[in-house]
Design a binder for these strands. Sequence first.
DNA 1: AATAAAAACAACCGCATTTAG
DNA 2: TCTAAATGCGGTTGTTTTTAT
Length: 280
Amino acid sequence: MGRAPCCDKANVKKGPWSPEEDAKLKDYIEKHGTGGNWIALPLKAGLKRCGKSCRLRWLNYLRPNIKHGDFSDDEDRIICTLFSTIGSRWSIIAAQLPGRTDNDIKNYWNTKLKKKLMGMSQKRSQNSITPNSILLDHQSLSLTSSSSSLPYPTLSFTGYQNYSIPSTNNPPSVVIQGQEGNYMMNSSIHHYQDHNSFLRFGSEVAAAAAASSSSSDDGSSIFINRFEDDQQKPIINYDQNPSLDCSLEEIKQLISTNLTFNNNFFLDEIKIEEDKFTYY
DNA sequence: AATAAAAACAACCGCATTTAG
DNA sequence: TCTAAATGCGGTTGTTTTTAT
């Protein structure tokens, strides 16, 4: 007993759409709309196609305001940030990128962006030059919430760069090397009225997307804070989140045992001041 | 110039969720 | 409330195009 087919497979065309078919579908939908019934639409529009195929063709290719062509750096950044936070939930990611479809983003990720990121992290692990990102090894992934069923690290962080707050145009990113592949978490720069600027890994966009979905994932973040008077003594604040079951002590341990990246990076001591760590 | 390999893109398939009767 | 149909989603496959040899 298999699943009932959605249409009569013998009498529907498969494969690439011809310009004539595109025109028929476009014309019909522009005049009559979808009528809320994709299954019935091909018959009405005079198409020998499955309703699902029509829907896909319309959503991914024919509907107005679809963007084709290269992705911008901003789009790259949003995709990376969201992927690192919510994983391969392409429809949610697509919702943040007007004009892009989930299929388009999925293809782009699988064929280009993923490789681009892998290349970046590999290059950095080979070179001793100061990177604009922080490379974490897989050992450091234990910050991931153990209650999460998500197959990717929610958040991990094991140290900081010897850095200064970068320009707003080019905030650094974290590349996480996981068993399943590499993930990149972008950062954003925040300014408080009575506070110094700091970097936040994971973004509000990502947090919002995670919150709006049914996922138990969170938008938790770690802040790297820089004192105005001394760039070389940042503070890392752990933004406590109930769904991230990792104690401050564990974080301290994690940080002190994972000083594995960047030649110019070193950590001597950690002091805990209630909910934050001060590095000396 | 011909061919093979890789990359890019479009579309399909089946499962999960939502909706309507 | 229950059930079947419709829809949406994400993984995967197939086809076309581009690049390398």
